[in-house]
Amino acid sequence: GQTTVQVRVPYRVVGLVVGPKGATIKRIQQQTHTYIVTPSRDKEPVFEVTGMPENVDRAREEIEMHI
């Protein structure tokens, strides 16, 4: 079944991970077949990644490449 993982990043890289108009996070979602919730600016900088476990792992690696 599907799993949801929280990926915490430093505040300063949230914009990098999301990309211009969300382009980068969309690409990560498409490439890894996951659904990613982006943290809002006034909340903790935690991305929520949902999908099959192996896909979630890949998405987390993609996010962490920006750190």
Score class of each variant (00 low, 15 high):
11 Y>D: 13
37 V>K: 15
36 I>F: 00
21 K>C: 10
19 G>M: 00
17 V>M: 03
36 I>N: 11
13 V>L: 15
33 H>M: 10
31 Q>D: 14
48 E>A: 09
65 M>G: 13
4 T>R: 08
52 M>N: 00
30 Q>V: 06
65 M>I: 12
6 Q>M: 11
3 T>C: 10
4 T>A: 06
28 I>V: 07
23 A>T: 13
25 I>C: 05
41 R>Y: 10
14 V>E: 06
57 D>W: 10
13 V>P: 02
61 E>P: 01
35 Y>D: 10
12 R>E: 15
1 G>A: 10
17 V>W: 04
17 V>N: 01
52 M>D: 12
38 T>D: 10
38 T>P: 13
24 T>F: 01
44 E>Q: 09
22 G>V: 05
28 I>A: 03
46 V>F: 06
26 K>V: 03
4 T>N: 01
55 N>V: 02
31 Q>A: 10
7 V>H: 05
18 V>F: 08
37 V>G: 08
30 Q>S: 07
39 P>I: 05
12 R>M: 08
66 H>R: 15
49 V>K: 03
8 R>C: 04
15 G>F: 00
45 P>N: 01
59 A>D: 00
20 P>H: 12
39 P>G: 07
59 A>L: 01
22 G>R: 06
38 T>A: 13
44 E>H: 02
38 T>M: 10
19 G>V: 02
8 R>G: 02
38 T>W: 08
16 L>R: 14
9 V>N: 00
36 I>K: 03
24 T>H: 10
44 E>R: 03
2 Q>Y: 13
33 H>F: 07
25 I>R: 08
49 V>C: 04
53 P>N: 09
11 Y>S: 15
43 K>I: 05
20 P>D: 11
8 R>K: 14
64 E>Q: 13
29 Q>V: 03
31 Q>E: 15
61 E>K: 14
63 I>Q: 01
67 I>K: 02
18 V>G: 02
61 E>I: 07
17 V>Q: 06
36 I>A: 06
4 T>G: 04
31 Q>V: 12
3 T>K: 07
41 R>A: 14
42 D>Y: 11
14 V>G: 03
39 P>T: 08
58 R>Y: 07
16 L>Q: 14
46 V>Q: 05
16 L>D: 13
42 D>I: 09
4 T>H: 08
48 E>V: 09
36 I>W: 03
2 Q>H: 14
55 N>D: 14
9 V>P: 01
61 E>Y: 11
63 I>E: 02
12 R>H: 11
56 V>L: 05
31 Q>Y: 05
18 V>T: 10
56 V>E: 00
14 V>T: 06
63 I>P: 07
30 Q>T: 11
24 T>V: 06
41 R>F: 09
4 T>F: 01
37 V>S: 13
39 P>N: 10
37 V>F: 00
55 N>K: 04
28 I>R: 08
10 P>T: 05
3 T>V: 14
56 V>Y: 05
17 V>S: 01
64 E>L: 14
56 V>K: 08
14 V>H: 03
25 I>W: 02
32 T>A: 03
46 V>T: 06
7 V>N: 00
28 I>P: 08
54 E>N: 08
12 R>I: 08
33 H>K: 14
37 V>Q: 12
63 I>G: 01
24 T>L: 01
9 V>Q: 00
24 T>I: 02
9 V>T: 01
45 P>I: 05
63 I>M: 02
45 P>C: 07
22 G>W: 03
66 H>Q: 15
36 I>D: 03
24 T>G: 08
59 A>G: 05
18 V>R: 06
32 T>D: 05
39 P>Y: 09
25 I>S: 03
59 A>W: 00
63 I>S: 01
10 P>N: 00
53 P>D: 05
29 Q>P: 02
23 A>C: 09
67 I>S: 13
8 R>F: 04
55 N>M: 06
6 Q>N: 04
36 I>T: 01
66 H>G: 07
55 N>W: 00
21 K>D: 11
20 P>F: 07
50 T>E: 01
10 P>S: 02
54 E>S: 10
31 Q>K: 14
32 T>Y: 02
60 R>S: 05
47 F>N: 07
49 V>D: 03
3 T>S: 09
28 I>H: 02
37 V>T: 15
57 D>K: 15
67 I>E: 10
24 T>W: 06
52 M>V: 07
32 T>G: 03
38 T>H: 05
2 Q>V: 12
50 T>Y: 05
17 V>K: 06
16 L>A: 13
61 E>W: 09
6 Q>C: 13
31 Q>C: 03
11 Y>Q: 15
42 D>E: 11
18 V>I: 14
33 H>N: 15
46 V>C: 04
55 N>Q: 15
45 P>H: 07
64 E>S: 10
12 R>Q: 14
58 R>M: 08
66 H>A: 15
14 V>S: 05
58 R>D: 03
64 E>P: 07
3 T>M: 06
49 V>E: 07
48 E>Q: 11
42 D>V: 07
34 T>W: 00
38 T>Y: 14
12 R>D: 15
62 E>H: 05
32 T>S: 09
36 I>P: 03
60 R>K: 13
45 P>Q: 07
48 E>P: 02
35 Y>V: 15
46 V>Y: 12
8 R>Y: 11
3 T>Q: 10
19 G>I: 00
29 Q>S: 11
54 E>A: 12
4 T>D: 04
43 K>G: 14
41 R>K: 14
59 A>Y: 00
18 V>N: 09
38 T>C: 14
41 R>S: 13
17 V>E: 06
55 N>Y: 01
4 T>W: 01
32 T>M: 04
23 A>L: 09
49 V>A: 04
36 I>E: 00
63 I>H: 02
29 Q>T: 05
52 M>T: 15
5 V>H: 01
35 Y>E: 13
34 T>D: 07
67 I>L: 09
24 T>K: 09
14 V>N: 00
3 T>I: 15
29 Q>G: 09
40 S>E: 13
24 T>D: 04
25 I>V: 09
65 M>E: 13
33 H>T: 03
62 E>W: 10
15 G>A: 13
1 G>D: 12
11 Y>W: 15
32 T>Q: 04
63 I>R: 05
47 F>R: 03
9 V>S: 02
34 T>S: 02
1 G>S: 12
28 I>S: 04
23 A>P: 07
33 H>L: 05
64 E>I: 11
54 E>H: 09
10 P>V: 03
3 T>N: 04
53 P>C: 06
46 V>N: 05
27 R>M: 09
38 T>S: 13
41 R>P: 14
65 M>K: 15
51 G>L: 02
59 A>R: 02
42 D>N: 12
32 T>E: 03
60 R>P: 04
2 Q>N: 13
9 V>F: 00
41 R>D: 14
32 T>W: 00
51 G>D: 04
8 R>V: 04
18 V>Q: 04
48 E>D: 06
10 P>C: 04
22 G>K: 08
42 D>G: 14
14 V>R: 08
48 E>G: 03
9 V>M: 04
29 Q>R: 06
5 V>E: 04
31 Q>T: 10
21 K>P: 01
49 V>Q: 01
